[in-house]
Design a protein around this nucleic acid. Structure first.
Length: 153
DNA sequence: GCCAACGTTGGC
DNA sequence: GCCAACGTTGGC
């Protein structure tokens, strides 16, 4: 079992959106970065736990927890001309991009702010806190997951 | 809104 | 296959 941080802009899709979906489930689509795609396609498994990170917003940080309920399958939005995530190179035979389904687990009463994560030396090795990091799917260790979630529960 | 950092593109 | 130019991300 693996642990992850998934990033999303709350204006596009927030933890509240996930919570209010039918079954509190949603496909995690729109990943268009190869490194993140490889994690999604090859290493994100059913049962893995995810810290749901809000980016490009007023208070960037980890808003709660989700879990993986379906492993990688083709992200069909890449083949949808009307989608923001359309990629003309994606085909039925070679979908290129993949997504997983995630389900709501918990919303923290207060966001674990990026600021406090950066100030804590325990988390200096997180990809999240690395300068210039733009990866939207990041692996973290079990220990890091537990220590981060411990900050709020 | 700025801008550093990074990924991607495309000419050569 | 190099690398400059460009576009995007995302914290501040």
């Amino acid at each position: 079992m693996n642990y992850w941080i998934f990033k999303s802009e709350p204006d596009t899709f927030s933890i509240d959106d996930l919570k209010s979906r039918p079954g509190q489930k949603e496909p995690w689509n729109g990943v268009r970065n190869y490194q993140a795609r490889n994690f999604l396609r090859d290493e994100v498994k059913v049962g893995d736990l995810i810290l749901f990170h809000h980016s490009s917003c007023k208070v960037p940080g980890i808003a709660g927890v989700a879990k993986v309920v379906k492993a990688a399958y083709p992200d069909h939005t890449a083949q949808d001309k009307t989608s923001d995530y359309y990629d003309p190179k994606a085909t039925q035979e070679n979908p290129i991009w993949y997504m997983v389904d995630v389900q709501f687990v918990e919303k923290f009463t207060d966001v674990i702010t990026l600021k406090e994560i950066k100030e804590n030396p325990k988390f200096e090795n997180l990809i999240l806190t690395r300068k210039g990091n733009r990866l939207s799917i990041m692996p973290i260790s079990k220990k890091e997951f537990e220590e981060l979630s411990k900050l709020r529960s």
